[in-house]
């Protein structure tokens, strides 16, 4: 039972960044823009979030307040970075995959350049502990409290709140419906007076917002509040894209897909603690490959009737109506 507690407690801080970034990718793609730059947006948000923590950590502020403020900084950074993608792919009608790749390449280099110049290291190192032993009240609930609200980070609770908000925006607001229309049939949306350009800008900006926060949460929950230019966010942005496709561009399914991947990854990194797996004597590297292999297996079975937005990746051209 202790192993189960351990796995779930360790899984959630990993699942939340994946979930938020995948939701971000979803908002961008249902609006019609393929956001391959998620990896870069995450690192950009994580970098500025960590930089903020670095400058404020000696002020004696409550760690959880610092986390919330850092989150805001990361969100703003993410939005700003995503505007570069929006400008290229919406205003300039660039190839979205290429613009995204360029943005992914830019950020690790910038982080390394900046950190080497000002810190003499490969990234930003902070010494604030965001770890929470037990959340008051919620942590006292039997079983559930121990699973979800003990030995965790505030990021888990915030992430779940963002999940609920995303579901409401996606299904219950006029904006959500209009955004999806722009990804399915932009010309039809345009013909009833919806500005496709504005909607797509908003969609990618939401992905920048969630991507930046997701990156910061990754650095808090996985990297102990540090950011490194070499390892970046370890492909979480790409994994989030896979989670989004696995989740068929729908928030509920994305949620379970994120949990699934986070579980596999946690399992891969805690093989020693599980006697059964440890006794099998399989090289640990195979477990590290497991999330990626599982992605491929799942995609192989689900992609035949993919629910991808029909107009994704195609720059909107009014004159083709």
């Amino acid at each position: 039972m202790d192993t189960v507690y351990y796995l779930i407690q360790n899984m959630l801080p990993i699942a939340i960044p994946l979930l938020l970034v995948a939701l971000g990718g979803m908002f961008s793609e249902v609006g019609g823009i393929i956001n391959l730059a998620l990896e870069g947006i995450m690192l950009f948000g994580a970098f500025f979030g960590a930089l903020f923590v670095y400058f404020i950590q000696d002020s004696g502020m409550n760690p959880q307040t610092i986390l919330l403020l850092g989150m805001v900084v990361a969100a703003v950074a993410g939005i700003i970075y995503s505007l570069l993608l929006s400008f290229a792919s919406i205003t300039m009608r660039a190839d979205q995959t290429i613009a995204g790749t360029a943005l992914n390449m830019l950020i690790p280099a910038v982080v390394l350049l900046f950190s080497k110049m000002f810190f003499g290291s490969d990234g930003v190192t902070t010494n604030v502990s965001f770890y929470i032993r037990k959340i008051p009240v919620l942590g006292d609930i039997p079983i559930l409290g121990e699973l979800f609200f003990q030995k965790t980070y505030l990021t888990v609770v915030i992430g779940l709140v963002f999940m609920i908000i995303s579901v409401i925006i996606f299904y219950k607001t006029r904006f959500g419906l209009r955004l999806r229309a722009c990804g399915e049939h932009p010309h039809a949306a345009d013909s009833v007076g919806i500005s496709v350009t504005k909607m797509r800008y908003l969609g990618t900006s939401i992905s920048g917002f969630l991507g930046g926060i997701g990156g910061f949460f990754y650095s808090v929950g996985v990297m102990d509040g540090n950011v490194n230019g070499h390892t970046g966010v370890a492909g979480f942005g790409f994994l989030a894209l896979a989670v989004m496709i696995f989740g068929q561009w729908r928030p509920g399914k994305v949620f379970f897909a994120a949990l699934f991947f986070a579980f596999l990854r946690t399992l891969a990194y805690s093989v020693e603690l599980i006697p059964f797996l440890n006794n099998l004597g399989i090289d640990r590297t195979y477990y590290k490959m497991l999330p990626y292999i599982a992605t491929m297996v799942v995609l192989a079975f689900t992609s035949k009737n993919s629910k991808a937005p029909k107009a994704e990746g195609i720059p909107y051209d009014k004159s083709l109506r």
């Binding site: 390449m105 830019l106 690790p108 280099a109 910038v110 390394l112 350049l113």
Partner: peptide, 23 residues
Amino acid sequence: YKPEIIDVVVAVIIYFSSFSMIM
């Protein structure tokens, strides 16, 4: 200067080349 400056330059070149045909 740190050699990473070139990675920055290359990334910026790709970014612009993704829509330079239009420019």
